[in-house]
Each structure stands twice: as C-alpha cells, then as structure tokens.
Amino acid sequence: MSAQSVDDALVAALARASVERAAPEELPLFRATSTAYFENPAALEQRRSRDEMLGFGVDAAVMLVTPVALAVAKDVIEFIGTQLRARAEKEGEGAIDRVLNRLLRRDEKEAASPEPAGVPELTDEQLEQVRALALEKAKQLKLSDAKAELLAESLVGSLATA
C-alpha cells in the first residue's frame, strides 16, 4: 500500500470497507486484487481472450465483488471530490483533506484517534447520489442486481459512518 498514491489508497480503503460488508470471503485476496487493479484499472473492463477456450470450459463469469468495488470506489471518490471541491470554495481547501484523512485513518485502523473539528459531512442527498452512482457502475460491470445493491449500500454505509 505504501507504493500507492493517496487517491489509490483512498479508493482501496473505501473498496475494502465495502467488501468487508458485501463479500467478506474475498478479503484474504483483497490486497493482491487491488494491487492488480491499480496497475491497470482498464483491465477489468477488457474482453476475455480467445485462448481461454482452451481452459476448463467455464464460460460464465463468476462476478467477484472486489474488482467491482474498486472500480466503483474510484468513481465514487472522484464524485465526492467534485462535490467537496464545490464546498471547499465556501469552506476552504482544508475540508477535502480532512475528509480524505478520515477515510485513510479508517483503513489504517486509526479511527479511534480524535476527530478533527469541522469535518464536513456528506448530505443525505449526496449519499443518495453516491448510492445511485455506485449501483449504476456495479451493474455496468455486470454485477448481479442483488450484489450491486449490496455493494452500493455497503459503500454508502462506509461513507456515512466514516
């Protein structure tokens, strides 16, 4: 994780928090999966190669939550960044950093440390926008409806309790 940029670390933290709730069985492989994802995020959406037909013969994809969670988290973080930048114009640049730091500390198990004063919260409306965005992205990545719902809820829950 040390080699990751702050943005990647943030995405990984948010995705991990979501996976913990939506697909805890995938957690042992989360680190390896996220590393592969950040090396080439586009790989997730690329088509399978033909030589896979020489494999076992399973052509139905088993949708893993982790890669989808990472992709969704990336979009969500970008969305939140945009939202917070708008608020920063009113409340100052430090607001963004405070939110990001809070998310990062959560990932690093430092959530118990004292909360800095004046951290901006996401509004209910923004959280609903995040949920809709996550749901759409997860479905776009072919996650089943049930799992997409679960992932979106988990993600919003992670943000709401961050």
Binding site: L29, Y37, G55, F56, G57
Partner: peptide, 13 residues
C-alpha cells in the same frame, strides 16, 4: 493468476 479475471476457470499450458 489474474486476480481481476472474473471467470472461475483454469488453463494448463
């Protein structure tokens, strides 16, 4: 392995 490959398959080569 490819952790991002969503399919559940293997390939001997």
């Amino acid at each position: 392995w490819n952790p991002l490959d969503q399919t559940a398959t293997g390939l001997a080569y």
